[in-house]
């Protein structure tokens, strides 16, 4: 092995990497927020008694969960212009990740909602709570609390998946790394650094979300 490692050009480009980290975090956070909201809609459809709504939700969820996210983003980025909708790389990335996340979030949240025993809802009704309050305080919040760890790992998974969005020129971490690669040809050093950054990011996010969850879901002790 006669290769001299040289991390200098990689480290010299740190502002680019910081931009990339911010891009990655921005895209995955937005997709998670949109995806979770859309996912709750699909979850409600999935659990509704109406056959058509249920079938649409199941079809959507299974279609998304059984196809690669790379193909989904290609479909959005290259396919949508044929329908007259032209999206930038980042918009396509966020849209694809949102659609992807919605399917997974729907199933995760459904698990949480199903863990709420009917007696709880009946108790709320017996106490004269309004329907919306019952849903908010008795169904959703405990349900989200129950599946919070799963949602966190879904978020981390999506953050890692966002690396694929470089292929539609969305400006996230891997995109900048590939730019740097074509400028410096230091592939090995770059991808090693990139791996370390992603590892640090996922550890950091996992801890941060854990703390956030402990604060937000600390009721009724609060």
């Amino acid at each position: 092995m006669n290769y001299t490692f040289d991390f200098a050009p990689v480290l010299a480009a740190w502002p680019m990497l910081v931009d990339g980290i911010l891009g990655t975090l921005r895209m995955s956070s937005l997709s998670m927020i949109f995806g979770l909201s859309l996912g709750i809609v699909f979850m409600l459809m999935r659990m509704s008694k109406q056959r058509t709504l249920k079938a649409i939700a199941i079809g959507y969820i299974e279609l998304i969960r059984n196809t690669p996210i790379l193909v989904q983003v290609f479909f959005v980025f290259f396919g949508m212009p044929a329908l007259g909708i032209r999206l930038s790389g980042e918009q396509a990335a966020i849209l694809a990740m949102t659609l992807n996340c919605a399917a997974y979030a729907a199933e995760i949240v459904r698990g949480g909602v199903q863990s709420i025993r009917p007696g709880q809802i009946e108790a709320g009704r017996a106490l004269g709570m309004r329907v919306l309050d019952i849903y908010r305080f008795i169904v959703f919040r405990p349900a989200i609390r129950a599946v919070y760890p799963a949602l966190c790992s879904q978020f981390i998974l999506m953050m890692l998946n966002s690396s694929l969005m470089s292929s539609v020129s969305a400006e996230e971490l891997t995109y900048f790394a590939q730019t740097l690669d074509s400028q410096t040809f230091r592939s090995f050093e770059i991808y090693l650094t990139l791996g370390i950054i992603y590892l640090a990011l996922s550890q950091f996010v996992s801890i941060a979300l854990g703390v956030l969850g402990r604060v937000y879901f600390s009721y009724p002790a609060k």
Partner: peptide, 22 residues
């Protein structure tokens, strides 16, 4: 932890560009 904390794409790139160095 390493494999679950990094993207598959980076793992593949790493092997693809790393092995020739060895």
């Amino acid at each position: 932890q390493i494999f679950q904390g990094t993207p598959l794409l980076i793992q593949l790139f790493f092997v693809y560009f790393g092995l020739p160095l060895l």
